[in-house]
């Protein structure tokens, strides 16, 4: 056996991983070749040094890997609502399915099991409020996802009850105006519907858009929250995106609570931001339509 062949085998020899015949040959060579013998010593020393620089994961990692998530069932007017939660907050909400279906869904999404537990009162109140269509100011949620996803979900929680925004507006607010599709996908993936009100985001072109539980449910939800869905659709059909007030010279999204106070004869409709600014109107500070 030549040096070259011996050198590539000395590490396997160190751990007895060579076949008997091969090991024998390597041993014989090492007895005759000083250089190779030294290399064996080097490898042994190296193995020891390198082992000492292995690094350990942060302690927090174990907790997040083995955390047991719990679930509870909340009654909402006779309909069961399944709620998964951790010590850090709400993790998933789902309506009207069986317990088994919910657990399967959860496992597929997060790769973890759920055990039955009691939903803490604070979270229960948030779920109840959300299902009732009330806004949840500071939802306690424990969500996974990219930074952008977290940002988008945060923006959704700030859309008030009774109002809607467009996907492009959310993308703009999140700092990535072109990521309109991405915003749509994030809304579609939202595991805590109602609490993070993804139903309050609609397409700029009119209609209520898609919803995990169907467009009809979305429409009903919005109507219950006081959004004049039919009126909005009519406006969208005419290409009207903003409403301004002749008295204040401010323009808003049509559902902005300030816009809805404008009396009939003071209302002006605009097709886009440019038209509004040309006529000397400034964007509303509350609904920030200029970022649409």
């Amino acid at each position: 056996m030549r040096c070259r062949n011996v050198l590539t085998r000395i590490d396997a020899l160190r751990t007895n991983e060579l076949a008997a015949g091969e090991a024998q040959e390597v041993h014989e060579h090492l007895g005759k070749c000083h250089d190779c013998e030294e290399s064996l010593n080097d490898v042994v020393a190296l193995a020891r040094s390198v082992r000492s620089i292995a690094i350990k994961p942060p302690k927090s990692m174990r907790a997040s890997l083995t955390a047991t998530d719990r679930f509870d069932v909340v009654d909402a007017g006779g309909r069961p609502i399944f709620v998964a939660f951790s010590n850090r907050g709400l993790r998933m909400i789902h309506t009207g399915s069986s317990e088994e279906e919910f657990r399967t869904m959860y496992g597929e999404r997060f790769g973890r099991e759920l055990v039955r537990g009691a939903l803490p009162e604070r979270l229960r109140r948030q779920v109840a409020a959300a299902v009732e269509g009330e806004g949840v100011d500071r939802p306690v949620v424990d969500l996974e996802g990219s930074e952008f996803e977290q940002t988008v979900l945060g923006i959704l929680t700030r859309i008030p009850r009774g109002e809607v925004r467009t996907y492009s507006w959310v993308a703009q607010q999140a700092g990535r105006p072109k990521a309109v599709r991405a915003v749509g996908n994030i809304c579609a993936r939202n595991v805590v519907p109602f609490v993070v009100p993804c139903h309050r985001v609609v397409p700029a072109g009119g209609g209520v858009g898609n919803y995990a539980f169907g467009s009809e449910v979305k429409r009903a939800l919005l109507e219950r929250e006081g959004v004049p869905v039919d009126e909005l659709e009519e406006m969208a059909g005419k290409g009207i995106r903003f409403i301004g007030s002749r008295t204040t010279h401010i323009f808003c999204f049509p559902t902005c609570r300030d816009a809805r106070r404008i009396r009939g004869d003071n209302r002006v409709a605009f097709h886009d931001e440019e038209e509004a600014t040309k006529k000397g109107f400034r964007p509303c500070k509350r609904c920030q339509p200029a970022a649409a």
Partner: peptide, 22 residues
Amino acid sequence: DDNRLGPFVGGAHSDLERREET
């Protein structure tokens, strides 16, 4: 290419030396 490995870090050192070495 393969050739002799050459000597390597090892043996007894003080703590400081070991930390530097690491």
